[in-house]
Simulated assay, not measured.
Amino acid sequence: MPRVSRKQADLNREIIVDAATRLFRERGLHGISVVDVMAAAGLTHGGFYGHFESKEALAREASERAFKEVGTRWRERVATTDDKAAARRALIEPYLSVNSRDNPGESCPVVAFAGDMCHESAGSGLREPFMAGLNRLLDSFAKLMDSQDSAENRQQALVQYSLMVGALTLARATRGEALSDEILEAARSFLTTEKPGSPPQPEDSA
């Protein structure tokens, strides 16, 4: 059997990572096998270890790519406006949408991987890209808050993003029930109309 060219080998590796990035987001970091990944990539199982030393090594790279994709998407969505409230809406509304709920393979890696991280040790090779990716998203979100105080902006980002992640998780867990749509709508409405990122206004003097 002829050897695969370097160009084709590099292309195959990209195909494998792309397939794994989607599958891991759909089923979690421990929810798929090497066979599943290679089948989704349209390649034979035997070729896997020519590209990766283990499934964990692939999962790490797929996790990094998933966070990179979301970071790029966030930057593109907020690039069209200088208004922070509008920028927040540009992130929140698609995040808490039916499309996001129903397409986990293209959606938030935090929701996809958080359950797995609960069972990973602090020194896990999978935990590092998760923490790095999560902190980058939080930093990006904090920049869209309205306070002049960076600590307050960080707190608001933590609160709002936690609500987004929790709402999307519950919406997926209840998909097919009316409650699922209610959860998305309630969280989306609260975050975009109540302006939780706005600093408190001073009370009128007596």
Rank of each mutant, 00 (worst) to 15 (best):
V70K: 12
T72V: 14
T72F: 03
R73K: 11
R73S: 13
W74V: 10
W74G: 00
W74P: 00
R75C: 02
R75W: 00
E76Y: 01
E76R: 14
E76I: 04
R77K: 12
R77Q: 14
R77A: 15
V78Y: 05
V78A: 04
T80E: 11
T80M: 05
T81W: 10
T81I: 05
D82W: 05
D83F: 04
D83G: 05
K84A: 13
A85H: 15
A85M: 04
A85Q: 11
A87L: 06
A87V: 07
A90F: 05
L91P: 04
E93P: 02
Y95K: 05
Y95H: 14
Y95W: 15
L96T: 09
S100P: 07
N103H: 15
N103C: 06
E106Y: 05
S107T: 14
S107K: 00
P109W: 08
P109I: 07
V110C: 12
V110G: 02
V111Q: 06
A112C: 03
A112F: 03
A112I: 03
F113S: 01
A114K: 11
D116M: 03
M117A: 01
M117G: 00
M117W: 00
C118P: 01
H119R: 12
H119S: 08
H119W: 03
H119N: 07
E120L: 15
E120W: 10
S121T: 11
G123P: 06
S124D: 03
S124E: 02
G125C: 11
G125R: 10
L126H: 08
R127M: 13
R127T: 05
E128D: 12
E128S: 09
M131T: 11
A132Y: 02
G133D: 03
L134G: 00
L134E: 03
L134W: 09
N135H: 15
N135L: 10
N135Y: 08
R136K: 09
R136F: 00
L137T: 14
L138I: 14
S140M: 13
F141W: 14
F141D: 01
A142K: 04
A142Q: 05
K143M: 10
L144T: 03
L144R: 06
M145D: 09
S147R: 05
S147I: 02
S150H: 09
A151V: 14
A151Y: 09
E152D: 13
R154G: 05
Q155S: 10
Q156K: 15
A157N: 11
A157E: 12
A157T: 08
L158I: 07
V159E: 11
L163S: 04
V165R: 06
V165F: 04
V165Q: 09
G166N: 13
L168P: 06
L168Y: 08
L168D: 05
L168A: 03
T169H: 13
